[in-house]
């Protein structure tokens, strides 16, 4: 049922989301506009405790260097000592700044670069044998609040998750994460479901989007219900010894998902066998039965090929 499912974050397949350290796709510019809108409405979606400045510069360096190497047609980074020039062509940005000097950027270093990077980012401090959620930018989240969780340790911010504590999942995951080394990032996948392709399923706005769940009918499952997969990666930061924790969200409708027969079949089995606690925790209770019924036509009991990629 639960697995820590961590693996090295190494390139897997050309054209897949695992090809580059930080995937940039066709939704890049619109997702960055969406982030800016959410931050305008609620600036507390981006916060950094005072001791996290060095980790912010680490984050900026990692993302700039990775993107410039992976997508040279879109991003360029040049350095003249501490004087850096960053060009982001899709967003029309060409900035020169002094690395390490926050007054030379329009935002703090973490906010500056993550306003230009898809997915949420938590920046974790490591001390006392624990990880602490001490900075982050969170505008595309599956129902958790940075503003509430900031400053918490690994066990505290996971407190609402059912079952996993008893299974020792968090103790094992923490042990692994405390030992992630610089230059050897790790990744895992996490999932839930969302009604409509809404990125900002925040608790802050839950009273606004929660009602969407009752709009699902047996007829509209294909277009209304989305699988939400998070690609979570873990990066040791070199100066601060912090851990960068990007959470990149991908949404796919049931209609599109089932265009890959293997995926429709697999999801039917996963949803059909999900324990009640997880149905509730993931917020699926009101529409999961309709979704399982809709997916049943893709599952004839056939064997599926190993791995997650289409056949």
């Amino acid at each position: 049922m639960y697995a820590v499912n961590l693996e090295p974050h190494t390139p897997v397949k050309k054209g897949s989301v695992f090809e580059f350290p930080f995937d940039v796709d066709e939704h890049y510019v619109s997702e960055m506009k969406d982030r800016a809108l959410v931050l305008d409405e609620d600036p507390l979606r981006c916060q950094s405790l005072p001791h996290m400045e060095a980790a912010g510069w680490d984050t900026l360096e990692l993302i700039m260097e990775s993107k410039a190497a992976a997508y040279p047609e879109h991003f360029s980074l040049s350095k003249d000592g501490d004087k850096w020039r960053w060009i982001n062509r899709p967003m029309g940005i060409d900035d020169t700044f002094i690395f390490g000097n926050t007054s030379t950027l329009p935002y703090g270093p973490m906010e500056y670069i993550t306003r230009q990077a898809q997915g949420d980012f938590a920046v974790l401090d490591q001390r006392d044998g624990n990880l602490w959620m001490d900075a982050g930018i969170v505008t595309t989240q599956a129902d958790w609040s940075l503003d509430f969780d900031i400053g918490m340790n690994f066990f505290e911010w996971h407190a609402p998750v059912p079952l996993a504590h008893e299974l020792g999942i968090f103790k094992r995951a923490l042990k692994f994460l405390l030992n992630v080394q610089h230059g050897k990032p790790a990744r895992r996948l996490n999932w839930t479901m969302t009604i409509n392709p809404r990125l900002d399923t925040s608790p802050e706005n839950y009273h606004k989007w929660g009602k969407d769940r009752l709009t699902v009918t047996p007829e509209n499952v294909g277009e209304k219900v989305y699988l939400r997969v998070e690609l979570q990666t873990f990066w040791r930061l070199p100066r601060s010894n912090g851990l960068l924790f990007p959470i990149r969200c991908y949404l796919i409708s049931m209609e599109e998902l089932s265009s890959i027969p293997k995926w429709g079949c697999r999801l039917h089995r996963v949803l059909g066998s999900l324990p009640q606690e997880l149905r509730d925790y993931k917020g699926l209770t009101s529409y999961i039965d309709d979704t399982v019924a809709w997916l049943s036509k893709f599952d004839q009991g056939q064997e599926t090929s190993p791995g997650t990629f289409p056949d």
């Binding site: 609040s145 509430f148 969780d149 900031i150 400053g151 918490m152 505290e156 407190a159 609402p160 608790p203 839950y206 009273h207 606004k208 989007w209 929660g210 009602k211 769940r213 009752l214 009101s286």
Partner: peptide, 27 residues
Amino acid sequence: GVLLLVRGHYSRRLAAYQGVCINAEDT
């Protein structure tokens, strides 16, 4: 005025439990 579920989720920084809308699906 939102009807809140008091979650078993506590922030020491805020010295408070989290309250989240309990009937967002159907008020």
